[in-house]
Design a protein around this nucleic acid. Structure first.
Lengths: 220, 220
DNA sequence: CCCAACCTGACACCGGGCTGAACGCCAGCG
DNA sequence: CGCTGGCGTTCAGCCCGGTGTCAGGTTGGG
């Protein structure tokens, strides 16, 4: 599943992201409603985890607005312990479920699993990339020479690039995605993975911008 | 589909009946195991929704007895949230799926839809998997060297994979299917079953994606 | 031409996955 | 009541492939 996490707390956000990524979900983590809106307009998510207290506005208003605009992606609300009214209002505003902070990561997994099962009917969205057809949920790529299999890290990189097709993604962003904040990896790991991806997908899919980062080629 | 609902709670029973009838399924609602047995002997149902706490006995014993008698109709168990052992025992006794009360009616529909798809239309849909012909309803596999018999857990795993042929199924999904949500099983049970399945079905049917999960091979 | 950035083949380590074997549990049976 | 066989689970050791690092080569900008 492709999940959008909207959470401004650094520690909690990282923990949640690691947890759900560890379960094989493609995860994007944003920290403001503005970024959340942009991400949702760009990528078709299967689930949104939404904190209600954010620096640039109230999550509830955001949710209500999105629902009003016809957005149907399931939303699970993350709310502080005593904000019961928020919870009720959240369900009224169109949330599918809620979790009370501090919550157990296992509980989070269970809720996500429930949502996944509930909406498992709809077919997985297929993304076209050059000659390839990519199914993010099934983690499968079909190409002219049959299936292509990627490793975990390779998926992370590719998903990160697919998130902004044609746009430039700085190398630092990819590093952050792979290694959380703390890990100080002083090496050319990203370059190695880019190389491996190109070897599997062929050149021309990923192009380099010296000193800036990488981008997906739009060319067929 | 023709569905038998076994539930003694008036409110819940009525709600469920209305829901599934509203979706075009023929529904019979009984409130005791005695009536359920009678109904099943009289009418060929496509699906049974079975509450485990009933006035005249334990649903589990009933289920086990029916399975022992060769009954193959798919059964979805309805169980209370804290009866974990019941859920596990339910799968052991031959249930096809379970729902935790209180459950969402939409979720119920999804499960019914899944069963409907799995056992669609024709009495015994044969699924082809490599050199094998699989009959899910009869829980039998015919292969080049004659019949292959699987244990219950092995069936659960295989069915889970068959639901998304060719797609990646994370190990966590298989664990959830076997052990409900909460069971903290810190072991390699899944790997053991995968190993046993491969031993029975031959290598090449189930392929591994390190750190991600398993998938059914499409190769003949 | 020089240097920085990048590419890529090679390689060692390590942790996840595989599997044979043993154990516990339960049901059936004499 | 003990025996037995089937099944689920755990454990230990091996294997293997993903991952990160490095070195040497290549590219591109100044």
């Amino acid at each position: 599943m492709r999940i959008l996490l909207v959470e401004d707390d650094q520690g909690l956000g990282a923990a949640v992201r690691d947890q759900i990524m560890g379960e094989g979900h493609a995860t994007d983590w944003v920290q403001t409603l503005a970024d959340a809106g942009h991400a949702m307009r760009t990528v078709p998510y299967d689930l949104v985890l939404l904190d209600l207290m954010l620096p640039d506005g109230r999550g509830l208003d955001f949710l209500r607005a999105r629902r009003g605009a016809g957005e149907v992606t399931p939303v699970i609300i993350l709310t502080a312990r005593d904000q019961i009214t928020d919870r009720i209002a959240g369900l009224n505003a169109g949330a599918d479920d809620y979790l009370v902070k501090p919550f157990d990561l296992a509980e989070l997994s269970a809720r996500i699993g429930a949502v996944a099962r509930r909406y498992s009917g709809n077919p997985n969205p297929q993304i076209d990339l050059g000659p390839y057809s990519i199914d993010l949920a099934a983690k499968s790529i079909f190409g002219p020479q049959g299936d292509v299999t990627l490793t975990q890290r390779e998926w992370v990189i590719l998903e990160c690039l697919l998130q902004r097709p044609g746009q430039l993604v700085p190398k630092s962003a990819l590093e952050e995605r792979l290694y959380a904040f703390d890990a100080e990896v002083e090496s050319n790991t990203i370059e190695v993975y880019i190389s491996r991806l190109r070897k599997k997908l062929g050149a021309g899919i990923i192009e380099t911008q010296r000193g800036l980062g990488y981008r997906l080629g739009l060319a067929a």
